[in-house]
Amino acid sequence: MKNLILTTAALAVTAGMAMADGHAVVRMGTEGAYPPYNFINDAGEVDGFERELGDELCLRAELTCEWVTNEWDSIIPNLVSGNYDTIIAGMSITDERDEVIDFTQNYTQPDPSSYLVASADADITGGVIAAQTGTIQASFIAASGATLVEFATPEETVAAVKNGEADAVLADNAYLAPIADEDGDLQLLDQKELIGGGVGMGLRESDGELKGKFDAAIQSMKDDGTLNALITKWEVGEQF
């Protein structure tokens, strides 16, 4: 943590002055609780697919970036009020969100959402399904016939299934798969739900210039295959 702060501080001092206009430092907002997309590693730093991706994007767009964590609940309000400049937190591009903020092009393919259950005969049509508040999965369950229970963190949704409060969790496959692999009591159902339009970076609607830079950087990573390599490394769904 300290090293991160020190290095970024040093970077900010040296590189920050060069850019007089626009964003001297781009603050990257993430949740830090959704592996493999983003999480806090043992050293207390932001890590994961989006950390690597974000650092590379900033390099290509010639921006100085700094990582900030924020609760998922308030991640959009804090973006629009200017506490940080981007959301890079495994956020799927949806029309509802697009009304409030802008998205870059998607940097992952739509990842099918999976059900994590304690027993294979769990009732996912009429039972109780856990999801994180304000996710595409939560709206999906709300629209289906099942009973939705929402939690503030992805962590708690899994805990709800383990202690029997919910019959299943619906979340991105990439998040649930490692948990199902390690926990003998939990498994994934074969049934998948295709929701969402892939993950993109969220920006303020008034921040068109920055959006353009990140769009171009994502495109260049798509073109030279580095994005695909990252997707394979962190197992976050299909390649482009």
């Binding site: 501080a9 629009v80 008034s206």
Partner: peptide
Amino acid sequence: RQGNDFVVCQAAKMPLGNAPQWVH
């Protein structure tokens, strides 16, 4: 106020956008 966005000029940011994280 631009729609949902709260936009002030870079110099008015508190703390400044390029300030290190510990200042924030």
